[in-house]
Measured scan of single mutants.
Amino acid sequence: NEEPLPEGWEIRYTREGVRYFVDHNTRTTTFKDPRNGKS
Rank of each mutant, 00 (worst) to 15 (best):
N1H: 13
N1M: 13
N1F: 13
N1R: 12
N1D: 14
E2Y: 11
E2C: 15
E2L: 10
E3P: 11
E3R: 10
E3T: 11
E3M: 12
E3F: 09
E3A: 12
P4N: 09
P4A: 11
P4H: 08
P4D: 10
L5C: 00
L5M: 11
L5K: 01
L5E: 01
L5I: 06
L5W: 04
L5F: 06
P6H: 03
P6Q: 04
P6K: 05
E7Y: 12
E7D: 13
G8S: 04
G8F: 06
G8E: 03
G8Q: 05
G8H: 06
W9P: 00
W9I: 03
W9V: 02
W9S: 00
W9A: 00
W9F: 05
W9C: 00
W9Q: 00
E10P: 00
E10G: 06
E10Y: 07
E10K: 05
E10R: 05
E10F: 07
E10V: 08
E10T: 09
I11M: 14
I11V: 10
I11C: 08
I11H: 03
I11F: 06
I11N: 01
I11P: 02
R12L: 09
R12V: 07
R12G: 06
R12W: 06
R12T: 04
Y13C: 06
Y13Q: 05
Y13L: 07
Y13T: 06
Y13K: 05
Y13A: 04
Y13S: 04
Y13D: 01
T14H: 02
T14S: 09
T14W: 03
T14E: 01
T14D: 06
T14N: 09
T14P: 01
R15M: 12
R15C: 15
R15T: 11
E16R: 15
E16G: 14
E16A: 15
E16Q: 14
E16I: 09
E16N: 15
E16W: 15
G17N: 08
G17Y: 05
G17D: 04
G17L: 05
G17V: 01
G17A: 05
G17F: 05
V18H: 10
V18F: 11
V18D: 07
R19H: 06
R19F: 06
R19Y: 05
R19T: 08
R19I: 13
Y20M: 06
Y20H: 02
Y20C: 07
Y20A: 01
Y20R: 01
Y20K: 01
F21Y: 08
F21W: 06
F21S: 00
V22Q: 05
V22W: 12
V22S: 03
V22Y: 15
V22L: 11
V22I: 13
V22N: 02
V22G: 00
D23A: 03
D23G: 02
D23M: 03
D23K: 03
D23V: 02
H24D: 04
H24L: 10
H24F: 09
H24I: 09
H24W: 12
H24K: 09
H24Q: 08
H24N: 11
H24S: 08
N25S: 08
N25G: 07
N25F: 08
N25I: 11
N25P: 03
N25E: 06
T26F: 04
T26I: 02
T26D: 04
T26N: 09
T26A: 06
T26S: 09
T26G: 06
R27F: 09
R27A: 13
R27V: 07
R27T: 08
R27K: 14
R27G: 15
R27Y: 08
R27I: 06
R27M: 13
T28D: 05
T28M: 08
T28A: 06
T28K: 11
T28S: 09
T28Y: 07
T28I: 08
T28W: 06
T28E: 08
T28N: 08
T28F: 07
T29R: 13
T29Y: 15
T29G: 07
T29N: 09
T29I: 15
T29F: 15
T30Y: 05
T30E: 02
T30F: 04
T30L: 03
T30G: 04
T30A: 04
T30W: 06
T30N: 03
T30S: 09
F31E: 07
F31Q: 07
F31N: 07
F31R: 08
F31D: 07
F31G: 05
F31S: 08
K32V: 14
K32F: 12
K32S: 10
K32I: 15
K32A: 10
K32M: 09
D33C: 02
D33A: 01
D33I: 01
D33Q: 01
P34V: 01
P34K: 01
P34M: 00
P34E: 01
P34H: 00
P34D: 01
P34I: 01
R35L: 03
R35F: 04
R35S: 03
R35P: 02
R35A: 03
R35W: 04
R35C: 03
N36P: 13
N36L: 14
N36E: 15
N36R: 08
N36I: 12
N36Y: 12
G37Y: 12
G37S: 12
G37V: 11
G37T: 12
G37P: 12
G37D: 14
K38R: 09
K38W: 14
K38S: 14
K38E: 15
K38N: 14
K38Q: 14
K38I: 15
S39L: 14
S39C: 15
S39V: 15
S39E: 14
S39I: 14
S39K: 12
S39H: 14
S39Q: 14
S39M: 12
S39Y: 14
